[in-house]
Design a protein around this nucleic acid. Structure first.
Lengths: 215, 215
DNA sequence: TGTACATCAGTGAACGCGCGTTCACTGATGTAC
DNA sequence: TGTACATCAGTGAACGCGCGTTCACTGATGTAC
């Protein structure tokens, strides 16, 4: 349990890892700076050498969580073989991304909730976020989003989605799959039997697909 | 500021109203038993004559919030005249319900977040919920849900939705609109300009409609 | 190769905060006779 | 119409909790000469 040296060597990463583990087990509220330091075996104050404060730490966790979400989406993509027909392939990709998203939410609810927890809702004072420019630096969510955008672009390329209906199509897809995840995790569907849950996921993914390519 | 009598007369309702106001302004985390009592002008202990504890109070607030959500949906429904054609009318209703849902989320973010906050995530110990039977008593959400179900039934009646595609159609619609609300409120779309936001809402509602009736 | 010194990365005690809840209590109300 | 008494609906002090953050500090590291 004793560190070899007075200096840790990689404290920033160690704290982020510990905080991520806390988020995994207990969601955003469980990301507690003091506890992360405790688990790493370091005084709470030491964290302030590497993070400006609690908000900074949780931001690192969010980035980690978003990364893992993207990984889950890529994994689902790799689970099924590419289709011959470009249209089938484009649909297969859409479906896989959505499935990877929901699967991640179900497999890692704590991380999922943390990735999407309201910025500033956890600040100690409970006051408004002191974000300097008011801009979102949840840009960690860019990788998953980028995958979705490319996937929708492909729908246009293969002729399944008209240019006219292209605008905000990603947002529609994202909203549906995100909402599904929330309802399954914290909403009225949270104690749904597994079999029903699978049916629901199928139905929503089918609805998104139909909503995208029809009109 | 002084009560006319030692007894309050309607403390339960007064506390619920104060707590709801707290939720309106600050979301679920702002629902603080002591603060509600303070605002009513009563000791914190008095609340325990009418609620078993903090969880009970927040449950009352959730019920209130769900009621107002249903009201918002009904209001939107009443905003446009009924259509002659039964199919148009069924679609009009679907759209109005979705719009009422999103509008409520945007107009009352604190109440909306409270209505859907995870049960047990606010318990003092931060531990698992001691819900006796494990069942959801968020059945307060039944009114909005019931309206949606009837609206989808109408789609079947007028022949816009096949019986085959009927199962879980409500869930698809709900998930999409709920996810949209979350993304607009706390997600990456939260600082979206008004004009874009309106376009997004239109696009999602159109996507849901298309996803429901096509296939 | 040795040494003075700046800098870096930790420590530990302390502060203030406000919460939910419990306790023993007391003032007000209503009811039986 | 009065009165004894049970019950109800409040009070106020206290407890324990654990957090984020600050402070003055000290041990370790590395660099210039």
């Amino acid at each position: 349990m004793k560190r070899p040296s007075y200096h840790h060597g990689d404290l920033a990463n160690a704290l982020t890892a510990a905080a991520t583990q806390l988020a995994r087990q207990g969601g955003p509220d469980a990301v507690v700076l003091r506890e992360a330091a405790r688990q790493v075996g370091v005084s709470a104050t030491a964290a302030y050498r590497h993070f400006t404060g609690h908000g900074d730490l949780i931001h690192a966790v969010k980035a980690h969580a978003a990364d893992q979400l993207a990984t889950s989406m890529r994994t689902e993509l790799a689970k099924t073989p590419a289709e011959r027909d470009p249209r089938d392939e484009a649909m297969r990709r859409m479906r896989a991304l959505g499935l990877g998203y929901v699967r991640f939410a179900l497999a890692e609810p704590g991380l999922f909730r943390t990735a999407f927890c309201r910025p500033g809702s956890l600040t100690p004072a409970g006051q408004s976020e002191p974000t300097p420019d008011g801009l979102e630096h949840d840009l960690a969510l860019v990788p998953p989003y980028q995958m979705l955008v490319e996937s929708i672009d492909a729908l246009v390329t293969v002729g399944l989605l008209s240019a006219e209906r292209r605008p905000w199509a990603e947002t529609f897809a994202w909203a549906s799959v995100h909402g599904l995840s929330m309802l399954l995790l914290d909403g009225p569907l949270r104690h749904c039997p597994d079999a029903e849950r699978e049916q629901i996921i199928e139905r929503v993914l089918a609805g998104v697909a139909a909503g995208l390519i029809s009109g």
